[in-house]
């Protein structure tokens, strides 16, 4: 039988938290550097599609939720270390990740897209990008996809999408690849206007997975079921559509 012990505060500062029991607060983990899905505004507040979906899900589950931010690289380790209970951070459902964590059903889908600076003539084929620099966010499906599809290109992996954007604008890389919605949001921004989208939408399931889902620790199937039910509920009662329309002109849920 699995025993659960709760260790109380040893030093006043160094607190070991008591195990979260059912009905307690659910802690949601996100990155906060991935507009328009999750980012931090000038007041230090988390904003974006993921955040509003997360809050709608909590309302649907009638649960109290709390947001915690983490580096993208550290987000699965942090989930495993129980710093939070679910990852709502635009994470693709992939075989690789499924070995470590469980996923809910998808809550949106998104292909990968490239962008180049206006006036440049880079074309998105494996041969044309040979020896060219491609910026991606590290440990993302985009990175896996780009590494596999453009093996002769030089790939620079960044800790966050924002840093990749910054280096793309600075000209440290030739083209940038990202989730298409994230890319379009960037191209719509003041600085992104100097760049343009290029090439087809890539949606190879082999690399890009089955859509974007919510990551939960393995063994916590209770939360997976609750979240799945909540996703279904907000899809049906129009909450999802309302949030969707606030950020996008089309339905990002996909078919």
């Amino acid at each position: 039988m699995k025993k659960i012990i709760s260790v109380l505060c040893i030093l006043s500062a160094l607190c070991f938290s008591v195990n979260t029991l059912a009905g307690d607060k659910i802690k949601l983990g996100t990155e906060g550097a991935y507009a328009p899905f999750n980012s931090i505004d000038a007041k230090g507040k988390l904003v974006g599609f993921d955040i509003e979906i997360g809050e709608a899900l909590c309302a649907a589950m009638e649960a109290e939720c709390e947001w915690v931010t983490s580096d993208w690289d550290g987000i699965i380790p942090a989930l495993l270390a129980k710093k939070f209970d679910a990852i709502i951070a635009s994470m693709s459902i992939t075989e690789e990740r499924k070995q470590k964590i469980a996923f809910t059903q998808k809550y949106y889908t998104s292909p990968v897209k490239f962008a180049r600076m206006k006036g440049s003539s880079f074309e998105i084929t494996p041969d044309k990008l040979k020896g060219k620099y491609i910026a991606v966010q590290s440990s993302t499906v985009t990175e896996n996809f780009v590494r596999a599809t453009f093996p002769k290109a030089k790939i620079k992996a960044y800790k966050s999408q924002e840093e990749a954007n910054l280096d793309f604008l600075a000209g440290r890389v030739d083209v940038i690849a990202a989730d298409s919605f994230v890319l379009y949001d960037f191209l719509d921004s003041k600085q992104g206007k100097q760049a343009e989208a290029v090439g087809p939408d890539f949606d190879d399931v082999k690399y890009l997975g089955e859509g974007i889902g919510i990551g939960v620790r393995k063994g916590n199937s209770e939360l997976v079921n609750k979240l799945n039910a909540a996703i279904k509920k907000i899809r049906e009662d129009g909450t999802y559509q309302k949030i969707n329309n606030k950020y996008f002109k089309f339905d990002v849920y996909g078919s």
């Binding site: 039988m1 699995k2 025993k3 659960i4 012990i5 260790v7 160094l14 607190c15 070991f16 938290s17 195990n19 979260t20 270390a81 129980k82 710093k83």
Partner: peptide, 9 residues
Amino acid sequence: FDVEVIIDL
């Protein structure tokens, strides 16, 4: 040891 401990730093 089949014991669950959570350290929340």
